[in-house]
Protein backbone atom coordinates (compact mmCIF):
# COMPACT_ATOMS: atom_id res chain seq x y z
CA UNK A 1 0.00 0.00 0.00
CA UNK A 2 1.18 3.43 -0.85
CA UNK A 3 1.11 5.80 2.07
CA UNK A 4 1.99 8.77 -0.04
CA UNK A 5 -1.54 10.08 0.06
CA UNK A 6 -1.01 10.88 3.69
CA UNK A 7 1.17 13.75 2.57
CA UNK A 8 -1.13 15.00 -0.11
CA UNK A 9 -1.43 18.78 0.04
CA UNK A 10 -5.19 18.65 -0.45
CA UNK A 11 -5.74 16.29 2.45
CA UNK A 12 -3.66 18.41 4.73
CA UNK A 13 -5.42 21.54 3.58
CA UNK A 14 -8.76 19.99 4.29
CA UNK A 15 -7.85 18.69 7.70
CA UNK A 16 -6.09 21.90 8.64
CA UNK A 17 -8.99 24.06 7.58
CA UNK A 18 -11.52 22.02 9.51
CA UNK A 19 -9.44 21.73 12.64
CA UNK A 20 -8.16 25.27 12.52
CA UNK A 21 -11.50 26.88 11.82
CA UNK A 22 -12.95 24.98 14.75
CA UNK A 23 -10.21 26.18 17.07
CA UNK A 24 -10.41 29.70 15.72
CA UNK A 25 -14.12 29.66 16.34
CA UNK A 26 -13.70 28.42 19.87
CA UNK A 27 -11.14 31.11 20.54
CA UNK A 28 -13.09 33.92 18.97
CA UNK A 29 -16.34 33.10 20.70
CA UNK A 30 -14.50 32.73 23.97
CA UNK A 31 -12.81 36.04 23.34
CA UNK A 32 -16.10 37.68 22.45
CA UNK A 33 -17.67 36.60 25.70
CA UNK A 34 -14.65 37.37 27.81
CA UNK A 35 -14.03 40.74 26.22
CA UNK A 36 -17.63 41.78 26.59
CA UNK A 37 -17.55 40.57 30.18
CA UNK A 38 -14.40 42.51 30.98
CA UNK A 39 -15.92 45.69 29.66
CA UNK A 40 -19.18 45.00 31.44
CA UNK A 41 -17.94 44.63 35.03
CA UNK A 42 -18.28 40.86 35.06
CA UNK A 43 -16.27 37.71 34.48
CA UNK A 44 -17.93 35.78 31.70
CA UNK A 45 -17.55 32.03 31.19
CA UNK A 46 -15.73 30.51 34.10
CA UNK A 47 -17.14 27.38 35.64
CA UNK A 48 -16.53 25.07 32.70
CA UNK A 49 -12.74 24.67 32.89
CA UNK A 50 -11.80 27.34 35.44
CA UNK A 51 -8.09 26.72 34.76
CA UNK A 52 -8.51 27.73 31.14
CA UNK A 53 -10.65 30.72 32.01
CA UNK A 54 -13.84 29.08 30.78
CA UNK A 55 -12.38 28.33 27.35
CA UNK A 56 -14.39 25.15 26.95
CA UNK A 57 -17.72 26.78 27.74
CA UNK A 58 -18.62 26.91 24.07
CA UNK A 59 -18.22 23.14 23.76
CA UNK A 60 -20.58 22.64 26.67
CA UNK A 61 -23.08 25.03 25.10
CA UNK A 62 -22.79 23.36 21.72
CA UNK A 63 -23.31 19.97 23.31
CA UNK A 64 -26.39 21.24 25.10
CA UNK A 65 -27.83 22.61 21.88
CA UNK A 66 -27.07 19.49 19.91
CA UNK A 67 -28.77 17.12 22.32
CA UNK A 68 -31.84 19.31 22.69
CA UNK A 69 -34.83 18.49 20.58
CA UNK A 70 -35.05 20.29 17.26
CA UNK A 71 -38.59 21.50 16.85
CA UNK A 72 -40.22 22.01 13.50
CA UNK A 73 -43.39 23.92 14.16
CA UNK A 74 -46.66 23.51 12.40
CA UNK A 75 -46.91 25.77 9.42
CA UNK A 76 -43.21 25.82 8.66
CA UNK A 77 -42.13 24.80 5.20
CA UNK A 78 -40.38 21.66 6.40
CA UNK A 79 -37.91 21.08 3.61
CA UNK A 80 -36.33 24.51 3.63
CA UNK A 81 -36.75 24.95 7.35
CA UNK A 82 -34.66 21.86 8.00
CA UNK A 83 -32.14 22.26 5.21
CA UNK A 84 -31.74 26.01 5.54
CA UNK A 85 -29.17 25.88 8.34
CA UNK A 86 -27.19 23.23 6.50
CA UNK A 87 -27.15 25.33 3.36
CA UNK A 88 -26.18 28.33 5.45
CA UNK A 89 -23.19 26.75 7.08
CA UNK A 90 -22.04 24.98 3.92
CA UNK A 91 -22.01 28.21 1.96
CA UNK A 92 -20.44 30.14 4.80
CA UNK A 93 -17.60 27.69 5.37
CA UNK A 94 -17.27 26.45 1.79
CA UNK A 95 -16.17 29.86 0.62
CA UNK A 96 -12.98 29.70 2.60
CA UNK A 97 -12.05 26.33 1.11
CA UNK A 98 -11.59 27.93 -2.29
CA UNK A 99 -8.71 30.08 -1.12
CA UNK A 100 -5.26 28.59 -0.63
CA UNK A 101 -3.83 28.47 2.84
CA UNK A 102 -0.22 28.56 1.69
CA UNK A 103 1.16 28.47 -1.86
CA UNK A 104 0.83 24.71 -1.98
CA UNK A 105 -1.76 23.83 0.61
CA UNK A 106 -4.88 24.34 -1.41
CA UNK A 107 -7.92 22.58 -2.71
CA UNK A 108 -7.74 23.81 -6.30
CA UNK A 109 -4.75 22.02 -7.73
CA UNK A 110 -4.56 23.72 -11.11
CA UNK A 111 -2.76 27.06 -10.74
CA UNK A 112 -4.66 28.47 -13.68
CA UNK A 113 -7.94 27.91 -11.89
CA UNK A 114 -6.92 29.75 -8.73
CA UNK A 115 -8.19 33.16 -9.90
CA UNK A 116 -11.61 31.66 -10.41
CA UNK A 117 -11.46 30.18 -6.94
CA UNK A 118 -10.99 33.63 -5.44
CA UNK A 119 -13.90 35.13 -7.32
CA UNK A 120 -16.01 32.12 -6.65
CA UNK A 121 -15.41 32.28 -2.93
CA UNK A 122 -16.73 35.84 -2.88
CA UNK A 123 -19.77 34.76 -4.86
CA UNK A 124 -20.45 31.91 -2.47
CA UNK A 125 -20.15 34.25 0.48
CA UNK A 126 -22.66 36.62 -1.00
CA UNK A 127 -25.05 33.71 -1.37
CA UNK A 128 -25.17 33.27 2.40
CA UNK A 129 -27.72 36.04 2.68
CA UNK A 130 -29.98 34.12 0.34
CA UNK A 131 -29.81 31.21 2.76
CA UNK A 132 -30.92 33.59 5.50
CA UNK A 133 -33.84 34.78 3.43
CA UNK A 134 -34.77 31.17 2.74
CA UNK A 135 -34.71 30.41 6.45
CA UNK A 136 -36.85 33.43 7.23
CA UNK A 137 -39.34 32.57 4.55
CA UNK A 138 -39.69 28.93 5.54
CA UNK A 139 -40.33 29.76 9.19
CA UNK A 140 -43.67 31.34 8.23
CA UNK A 141 -43.76 33.78 11.10
CA UNK A 142 -44.15 37.52 10.90
CA UNK A 143 -41.01 38.30 12.83
CA UNK A 144 -39.00 35.91 10.66
CA UNK A 145 -40.44 37.47 7.52
CA UNK A 146 -39.55 40.94 8.63
CA UNK A 147 -36.07 39.78 9.55
CA UNK A 148 -35.65 38.13 6.16
CA UNK A 149 -36.88 41.25 4.39
CA UNK A 150 -34.39 43.30 6.35
CA UNK A 151 -31.59 40.94 5.43
CA UNK A 152 -32.51 41.35 1.79
CA UNK A 153 -32.48 45.13 2.18
CA UNK A 154 -29.13 45.17 3.89
CA UNK A 155 -27.63 43.12 1.09
CA UNK A 156 -28.29 46.04 -1.21
CA UNK A 157 -26.41 48.29 1.16
CA UNK A 158 -23.20 46.29 1.42
CA UNK A 159 -22.93 44.18 -1.69
CA UNK A 160 -21.83 46.86 -4.13
CA UNK A 161 -19.26 48.47 -1.81
CA UNK A 162 -17.90 45.04 -0.98
CA UNK A 163 -17.44 44.16 -4.63
CA UNK A 164 -15.98 47.58 -5.39
CA UNK A 165 -13.43 47.34 -2.62
CA UNK A 166 -12.53 43.89 -3.92
CA UNK A 167 -12.20 45.39 -7.37
CA UNK A 168 -10.00 48.15 -6.05
CA UNK A 169 -7.54 45.63 -4.67
CA UNK A 170 -7.61 43.56 -7.82
CA UNK A 171 -6.85 46.65 -9.90
CA UNK A 172 -4.03 47.49 -7.55
CA UNK A 173 -2.46 44.07 -7.75
CA UNK A 174 -3.32 43.55 -11.37
CA UNK A 175 -4.14 39.91 -10.79
CA UNK A 176 -6.75 37.62 -9.35
CA UNK A 177 -4.38 34.84 -8.48
CA UNK A 178 -4.10 34.57 -4.69
CA UNK A 179 -0.48 33.46 -4.84
CA UNK A 180 0.48 36.50 -6.87
CA UNK A 181 -1.68 38.75 -4.70
CA UNK A 182 0.35 37.73 -1.69
CA UNK A 183 3.59 38.19 -3.56
CA UNK A 184 2.68 41.68 -4.69
CA UNK A 185 1.96 42.89 -1.18
CA UNK A 186 5.39 44.35 -0.43
CA UNK A 187 3.36 46.52 1.92
CA UNK A 188 0.15 45.17 3.40
CA UNK A 189 -2.82 45.93 1.20
CA UNK A 190 -4.52 47.71 4.07
CA UNK A 191 -1.79 50.35 3.94
CA UNK A 192 -1.71 50.53 0.18
CA UNK A 193 -5.40 51.26 0.00
CA UNK A 194 -6.79 52.02 3.45
CA UNK A 195 -10.11 53.14 2.03
CA UNK A 196 -10.78 49.78 0.48
CA UNK A 197 -9.82 48.09 3.73
CA UNK A 198 -12.22 50.27 5.71
CA UNK A 199 -15.04 49.57 3.30
CA UNK A 200 -14.35 45.86 3.30
CA UNK A 201 -14.34 45.72 7.09
CA UNK A 202 -17.59 47.63 7.44
CA UNK A 203 -19.24 45.64 4.68
CA UNK A 204 -18.13 42.45 6.38
CA UNK A 205 -19.68 43.58 9.62
CA UNK A 206 -22.92 44.23 7.75
CA UNK A 207 -22.80 40.96 5.87
CA UNK A 208 -22.22 38.86 8.95
CA UNK A 209 -24.65 40.79 11.17
CA UNK A 210 -21.95 41.89 13.58
CA UNK A 211 -22.59 44.85 15.82
CA UNK A 212 -23.55 47.57 15.07
CA UNK A 213 -25.36 46.01 12.12
CA UNK A 214 -27.19 43.21 13.89
CA UNK A 215 -30.37 44.33 12.24
CA UNK A 216 -31.97 41.30 10.62
CA UNK A 217 -31.89 39.44 13.92
CA UNK A 218 -32.32 42.51 16.11
CA UNK A 219 -33.77 41.38 19.40
CA UNK A 220 -35.49 44.65 20.11
CA UNK A 221 -38.38 44.28 17.73
CA UNK A 222 -38.13 41.10 15.67
CA UNK A 223 -36.81 38.69 18.32
CA UNK A 224 -33.81 37.21 16.46
CA UNK A 225 -35.66 37.59 13.18
CA UNK A 226 -35.22 34.70 10.75
CA UNK A 227 -33.90 32.42 13.47
CA UNK A 228 -36.65 33.09 15.97
CA UNK A 229 -38.18 29.63 15.52
CA UNK A 230 -34.96 27.70 15.61
CA UNK A 231 -33.69 25.60 18.45
CA UNK A 232 -31.20 22.85 19.01
CA UNK A 233 -28.96 21.84 16.15
CA UNK A 234 -30.66 24.24 13.75
CA UNK A 235 -29.66 27.18 15.88
CA UNK A 236 -26.08 25.92 16.11
CA UNK A 237 -25.79 25.61 12.36
CA UNK A 238 -27.38 28.94 11.49
CA UNK A 239 -27.40 31.69 14.08
CA UNK A 240 -24.81 30.43 16.53
CA UNK A 241 -22.30 28.63 14.33
CA UNK A 242 -23.01 29.53 10.75
CA UNK A 243 -22.72 33.24 11.30
CA UNK A 244 -19.28 32.73 12.80
CA UNK A 245 -18.20 30.61 9.87
CA UNK A 246 -19.29 33.41 7.58
CA UNK A 247 -17.22 35.83 9.62
CA UNK A 248 -14.33 33.42 9.39
CA UNK A 249 -14.57 33.22 5.64
CA UNK A 250 -14.86 36.98 5.21
CA UNK A 251 -11.94 37.56 7.54
CA UNK A 252 -9.96 34.92 5.69
CA UNK A 253 -10.59 36.74 2.45
CA UNK A 254 -9.78 40.09 4.02
CA UNK A 255 -6.52 38.75 5.40
CA UNK A 256 -5.54 37.54 1.97
CA UNK A 257 -6.43 40.78 0.25
CA UNK A 258 -5.41 43.33 2.82
CA UNK A 259 -3.13 41.84 5.42
CA UNK A 260 -0.64 40.02 3.30
CA UNK A 261 -2.10 36.54 3.56
CA UNK A 262 0.50 33.98 4.50
CA UNK A 263 3.41 36.14 3.35
CA UNK A 264 6.28 36.62 5.75
CA UNK A 265 8.94 38.99 4.37
CA UNK A 266 12.27 37.36 3.54
CA UNK A 267 10.94 33.90 4.20
CA UNK A 268 10.84 31.58 1.24
CA UNK A 269 9.07 28.31 1.69
CA UNK A 270 10.20 25.12 0.01
CA UNK A 271 7.91 22.70 -1.71
CA UNK A 272 5.41 20.46 0.03
CA UNK A 273 5.92 17.95 1.71
CA UNK A 274 9.71 18.45 2.05
CA UNK A 275 9.32 21.79 3.82
CA UNK A 276 6.35 20.77 5.88
CA UNK A 277 7.22 22.91 8.87
CA UNK A 278 7.61 25.97 6.73
CA UNK A 279 4.17 25.48 5.26
CA UNK A 280 2.61 24.90 8.63
CA UNK A 281 4.27 28.06 9.90
CA UNK A 282 2.81 30.06 7.03
CA UNK A 283 -0.61 28.54 7.58
CA UNK A 284 -0.41 29.38 11.25
CA UNK A 285 0.57 32.96 10.46
CA UNK A 286 -2.36 33.30 8.05
CA UNK A 287 -4.84 31.93 10.55
CA UNK A 288 -3.44 34.05 13.35
CA UNK A 289 -4.10 37.22 11.38
CA UNK A 290 -7.57 35.98 10.53
CA UNK A 291 -8.26 35.36 14.19
CA UNK A 292 -7.11 38.81 15.18
CA UNK A 293 -9.37 40.35 12.58
CA UNK A 294 -12.29 38.29 13.87
CA UNK A 295 -11.50 39.37 17.39
CA UNK A 296 -11.92 42.96 16.31
CA UNK A 297 -15.41 42.15 15.07
CA UNK A 298 -16.11 40.34 18.30
CA UNK A 299 -14.99 43.31 20.34
CA UNK A 300 -17.51 45.57 18.62
CA UNK A 301 -20.23 43.82 20.62
CA UNK A 302 -18.96 45.48 23.74
CA UNK A 303 -18.86 48.96 22.29
CA UNK A 304 -21.79 49.33 19.94
CA UNK A 305 -25.57 49.45 19.99
CA UNK A 306 -27.52 48.56 16.85
CA UNK A 307 -27.95 50.97 13.97
CA UNK A 308 -31.35 51.63 12.50
CA UNK A 309 -32.31 49.94 9.26
CA UNK A 310 -32.95 53.08 7.21
CA UNK A 311 -29.78 54.68 8.52
CA UNK A 312 -27.86 51.58 7.56
CA UNK A 313 -29.18 51.76 4.03
CA UNK A 314 -28.39 55.45 3.92
CA UNK A 315 -24.94 54.76 5.23
CA UNK A 316 -24.46 52.00 2.67
CA UNK A 317 -25.50 54.07 -0.30
CA UNK A 318 -24.22 57.51 0.67
CA UNK A 319 -21.18 56.56 2.68
CA UNK A 320 -19.82 53.18 1.77
CA UNK A 321 -20.56 53.39 -1.91
CA UNK A 322 -18.83 56.75 -2.24
CA UNK A 323 -15.91 55.51 -0.19
CA UNK A 324 -15.57 52.40 -2.28
CA UNK A 325 -15.63 54.39 -5.51
CA UNK A 326 -12.93 56.58 -4.05
CA UNK A 327 -11.03 53.42 -3.18
CA UNK A 328 -11.20 52.29 -6.81
CA UNK A 329 -10.03 55.70 -7.98
CA UNK A 330 -7.20 55.58 -5.47
CA UNK A 331 -6.15 52.19 -6.80
CA UNK A 332 -6.23 53.37 -10.39
CA UNK A 333 -4.15 56.41 -9.49
CA UNK A 334 -1.64 54.24 -7.66
CA UNK A 335 -1.51 51.95 -10.63
CA UNK A 336 -0.77 54.84 -12.99
CA UNK A 337 1.84 56.31 -10.71
CA UNK A 338 3.31 52.87 -10.85
CA UNK A 339 3.51 51.26 -7.48
Amino acid sequence: MDWGFLFSARLWFFVLMFAASGIVLLTVVWFERKAAARVQMRVGPYHVSPQLGGYLQLLADAFKFIISEPIVHKGAYRLLFMWGPAIFVTLAFGASLLIPLTPELRLIRDVNLLPYGLVFSLVVLLLVSIAIVLIGWSANNKFAYIGAAREALIVTAYELPLLLSFLAMVILYGTLNPIEIVERQWLAGALLNPLAFLVFIIATAMATAKFPFEIADYEGDVATGPYSDYGGIFLVLSFAGGAYYATFSYSFLATLLFLGGWGIPNFAVGSWPQDMLGHLLLAGWFLLKTTILMMFFAFLRAAMPVLRLDHTLLFGWRGLLVLSILAVVWSVVLKFVGI
Binding site: M41, Y218, R301, A302, P305
Partner: peptide, 16 residues
Protein backbone atom coordinates in the same frame (compact mmCIF):
# COMPACT_ATOMS: atom_id res chain seq x y z
CA UNK B 1 -33.04 51.07 27.29
CA UNK B 2 -29.45 50.16 26.56
CA UNK B 3 -30.26 46.56 25.74
CA UNK B 4 -33.33 47.64 23.79
CA UNK B 5 -31.20 49.65 21.42
CA UNK B 6 -28.75 46.77 21.32
CA UNK B 7 -25.98 47.80 23.67
CA UNK B 8 -25.33 44.99 26.10
CA UNK B 9 -22.67 47.11 27.74
CA UNK B 10 -25.23 49.73 28.67
CA UNK B 11 -27.43 47.03 30.14
CA UNK B 12 -24.67 45.50 32.21
CA UNK B 13 -23.42 48.83 33.47
CA UNK B 14 -26.88 49.92 34.49
CA UNK B 15 -27.52 46.70 36.33
CA UNK B 16 -24.01 46.46 37.71
Amino acid sequence: HGIMIGSSTGFMWGYG
